[in-house]
């Protein structure tokens, strides 16, 4: 019953968020200099008023604002996001085509960051103020301060250009590699550097956060109780300190989901990864706002879904939340 309530509340929240973003999108279109007609006119070189009027009518831009908004919202709800100003293809198709690549990259980076970051943080907390802690803290500080695109470029410089270990661009080799193993490893090999690039920043964040949460939790009374019970140290750290310290980390991971999707744009641009980030960059260069807005909407939906997943995880990890406390 409580779980049903939770699902329902989430559905309401998600709908509100998506609807707001759709409206925001519409407002942004109106803010943009010129409209689809002038863009197309500029392209074809035919700027005569008749052409402009015809195109505007074609895209429904001659109707009142409120009617346009309604049409827009209605279109979005039926997954009709309009056509690209450039390719004349429906942008929804273009985005859906590219979405798997982005999900693969962000997913890999998220998992990488969530596995490595907290592990390093725990290690640092256990070894607080000793060399291992110092090393982890310094590394986290360094990666926290590096721009993502720069990390990508340096990784390419080192691992592709100099060492030749990993491919620098794209998702697949242009000439498919020979052999089953090599073929199976083609995409994963391409995935390594973009994942590192996108993930290292979050590894740094999670490591710092985990270390802090672990040290703070270690000072709480119930940890003293665990020791007073005669539990071995590994049990105290694992079942008592870490189990409680990870709660703020899950919350934070959910909040950071939006940033992760944003970071994907940059990482995909650096590595020419064929995802929606790369699509956004191209749309940006060509001022293809319709496409850009579709990417924005898709990424917002992705964030809502990740938030849902982390909220669910948090409910499982912290029974106090479901009980209304």
């Amino acid at each position: 019953m409580r779980f049903l309530t939770f699902l329902l509340a989430w559905a309401v929240k998600a709908a509100a968020i998506v609807l707001t973003i759709v409206v925001l999108n519409f407002c942004l279109i109106r803010l943009a200099p010129g409209d689809v007609a002038t863009v197309l006119a500029g392209e074809s070189g035919a700027a005569d008023p008749e052409f402009l009027a015809r195109t505007r009518a074609e895209f429904g831009l001659d109707k009142p604002l409120a009617a346009q908004l309604l049409t827009y919202v209605g279109n979005v709800l039926t997954l009709d996001l309009g056509v690209s100003y450039r390719t004349r293809r429906p942008v929804a198709d273009m985005v859906l085509e590219r979405l798997p690549a982005t999900l693969m990259l962000t997913g890999a980076a998220f998992v990488f960051a969530l596995l490595v970051g907290p592990a390093l943080g725990v290690l640092a907390a256990i070894r607080a103020r000793r060399p291992a802690d110092t090393a982890i803290t310094v590394l986290a500080l360094l990666f926290y301060a590096m721009p993502i695109f720069w990390v990508g470029l340096i990784l390419i410089l080192v691992f592709s250009v100099t060492l030749g270990w990993l491919p620098p661009f794209g998702m697949r080799s242009i000439i498919p590699p020979v052999g089953d193993v090599a073929r199976a490893l083609d995409v994963p090999r391409h995935l390594v550097l973009p994942t590192l690039t996108l993930g290292l920043f979050y590894v740094a964040i999670y490591a710092r956060l985990t270390r802090g949460a672990m040290l703070e939790t270690a000072g709480l009374d119930f940890v003293k109780t665990a020791r007073a019970k005669g539990l071995p140290e590994w049990r105290v750290v694992g079942a008592h300190v870490f189990r409680c310290a990870m709660l703020p980390i899950i919350t934070f991971a959910g909040l950071q989901a939006g940033h992760l999707v944003g970071g994907a744009i940059v990482a995909e641009t650096v590595f020419a990864w064929p995802g929606i980030g790369r699509l956004a960059f191209d749309a940006l260069l060509q001022r293809d706002y319709n496409l850009l807005l579709a990417v924005f909407l898709a990424s917002a939906v992705a964030v809502v879904l990740i938030n849902f997943a982390t909220d669910l995880l948090l409910r499982i990890a912290d029974p106090r939340i479901g009980a209304g406390r």
């Binding site: 005669g230 079942a239 409680c244």
Partner: peptide, 23 residues
């Protein structure tokens, strides 16, 4: 460690804080 919890045990002031909050 073997003595703690077995031969000697301890209880604390604030039971809410002294118990594991989610176990």
């Amino acid at each position: 460690r073997r003595l703690r919890g077995a031969r000697m045990a301890m209880i604390f002031q604030e039971p809410m804080a002294a118990l594991h909050p989610i176990m």
